[in-house]
């Protein structure tokens, strides 16, 4: 790990001031990803501004019926919060499908959005990686790319965003409130993460020095018909190969509203509103689901060792939507959500 100086921020304005004009500085929340990247010399900040103890850990109801998730609330406290469990169970499931209890006790909500890809080459300093060293090339293209993306990739980068929580958020469409040198602003969740294009070093649309202060969920939580289906190489504590957040609003057997987002397939949590439109107004049948799945994967492109993800994703979408209709959960989800 490189040497660095450390400052515990006393207020949001203090944190922003500490970062301002210092591209070599970084915010640290729970540190579960950043400290790992620093040990690997992938991240080399010379100044750390600790924001984990800022008074941004509340989870509170909003006047419009929504729910505000403080940026420094831990993933565990968020998942197990009564309002999240009852009104946004999709989010509860997605958070608990990720990492381990220890990591969820440390990781913050803001940090979950800011975590970086787990592409092998991003971590491997001996190989070129455009995300780590812009202009050096992409080793995953033509390399071992089992974990890499199949949608929205570019010639520069085929990395995926690793979060489970963010896949549920993509479906629930909160607003990301940020504070920076030029004051506060709100970013729609879908606009927060970006596709790699020719600038894969940029994961998101934050301006320099901006800090996430909260995630504001809209009132609609799809608490009756939802599913978070995560497919991975072992049954716990592994990143998704493909995951699906499916949320439906049903009127009898007719789909009134639908949300569909995928993880493990792209540089950002992949919400497909065209596919959602193919679901709305239609009968909730396997045929309808298969049409939506085909739409999502229409332009998918495999890169060799991840070709299997295209078919896997199609089937996962159909299965997740079936589970959402049944209002049932998979066996693994039942125990994740059990209560004392």
């Amino acid at each position: 790990m490189n040497s660095f100086t450390y400052h515990r921020a006393t207020a949001v304005a203090d944190a922003v001031r500490e970062q301002s004009g210092r591209p070599d500085a970084a915010y640290i929340g729970g540190g579960t990803n950043l400290i790992d990247l620093m040990k690997e010399n992938v991240a080399r900040p010379t100044h750390l501004v600790s924001v984990g103890k800022l008074p941004l850990s509340d989870i509170e109801n909003l006047p419009d019926g929504g729910l505000r998730l403080g940026a420094t609330a831990t993933n565990a406290d968020t998942a197990w919060h009564e309002e999240v469990k009852s009104r946004y169970p999709l989010l509860n499931q997605a958070i608990l499908a990720g990492a381990s209890p220890q990591l969820r006790n440390m990781a913050t909500n803001g940090g979950n959005l800011m975590q970086r890809t787990r592409c092998y080459y991003f971590y491997d300093l001996a190989t070129p990686c455009n995300k780590r060293e812009p202009g050096s090339g992409c080793s995953a293209i033509g390399g071992y790319n089992r974990v890499c993306g199949i949608l929205g990739t570019s010639d520069s980068c085929i990395a995926t965003h690793p979060s489970d929580m963010c896949v549920a958020l993509a479906a629930l469409a909160p607003t990301v409130r940020v504070s920076g040198p030029n004051g506060e602003r709100s970013i729609a969740f879908d606009d927060f993460h970006r596709l790699p294009g020719n600038q894969p070093e940029k994961d998101n649309t934050l301006e320099p020095g901006e800090l996430i202060v909260s995630l504001d969920l809209p009132a609609k939580g799809f608490e009756k018909n939802f599913s978070y289906l995560k497919l991975r190489d072992r049954s716990s504590y592994a990143f998704a190969l493909v995951s699906v957040a499916a949320a439906l609003e049903l009127d009898g057997n007719t789909i009134r509203d639908a949300r569909l987002a995928l993880g493990g397939v792209a540089h950002k949590p992949w919400r497909d509103q065209e596919a959602e439109n193919l679901l709305k107004g239609q009968p909730a049948t396997v045929e309808t689901f298969a049409r939506a799945a085909a739409k999502v994967l229409e332009n998918a492109q495999g890169h060799g060792s991840n070709d299997f993800k295209i078919e896997l994703a199609k089937r996962a979408i159909v299965r997740a939507l079936k589970q959402a209709v049944e209002g049932s959960q998979t066996a693994s989800d039942v125990f994740l959500n059990s209560n004392p």
């Binding site: 540190g31 220890q102 006790n105 440390m106």
Partner: peptide, 13 residues
């Protein structure tokens, strides 16, 4: 009272 991984956090935190 909450379990964490002590390797991924700084003492100063």
């Amino acid at each position: 009272g909450k379990r964490i991984n002590s390797c991924l956090t700084l003492a100063v935190m």
